[in-house]
């Protein structure tokens, strides 16, 4: 596994469009060399590159707006009123009649249905193998936020992917 594959994976699942993903990665390499002064030997190269990538993604897709506080506004309410939960039940499962596809196609599709604030931590921690602390650094948010978004995001994701995750639902 190379950092290029890693970056592409992250970009692909953040951006949802293959062309955007390629642009993100190419730009990341260009920016990394442009910002070489900020790179101290010994720095975790993978995390550093990922952070450049994520910042570029945010700049491009949100004109600098980060972390729309979905969670902060809904965290206090109970489950039933959670708009993301509602969305999950209203939308049917991902192509449940498709017997077999490349697993990655399924996962990318399911991740793509998650709101970005839940998608990004899952992409970083589960696909990128980052620790919570590293993910929080990339995302510029508190570690606790990474943890709660992972929990909520995975709960949604599990709903989309039930048939691929062969364990029974908790009551």
């Amino acid at each position: 596994m190379t950092h290029l594959d890693h970056l592409y994976r992250i970009a692909y699942n953040l951006a949802k469009a293959p062309d955007d993903a390629q642009d993100l990665v190419q730009e990341t390499y260009a920016r990394a060399l442009g910002a070489y002064e900020q790179f101290a030997p010994g720095t975790h190269l993978k995390a550093w590159l990922t952070r450049i990538l994520y910042n570029f993604f945010v700049d491009r897709h949100h004109q600098g707006k980060r972390w729309v506080s979905v969670e902060d506004s809904t965290a206090q309410k109970n489950e039933e009123s959670d708009p993301w939960e509602k969305m999950a039940t209203e939308n049917p499962g991902p192509d449940s009649h498709v017997l077999r596809q490349e697993l990655s196609v399924q996962i990318t599709g399911a991740l793509g249905r998650l709101p970005e604030e839940f998608r990004a931590p899952i992409v970083l921690v589960d696909m990128g193998d980052f620790s919570y602390v590293e993910a929080a650094e990339v995302l510029s948010c508190p570690v606790g936020t990474v943890r709660s978004r992972l929990f909520r995001g995975r709960r949604l994701l599990h709903g989309y992917l039930k048939e691929y995750v062969g364990t029974k639902e908790p009551a």
Partner: peptide
């Protein structure tokens, strides 16, 4: 119930990791 939730989380993580291993940067990139 929570044991089952734990197993579910572990299984989901494994599925995502397996999917990630399938994804490679295209030659074009």
């Amino acid at each position: 119930d929570c044991r089952s939730l734990y197993q579910q989380q572990v299984a989901l993580k494994q599925v995502i990791r397996r999917a990630a291993a399938e994804m490679k940067a295209p030659l074009e990139l």
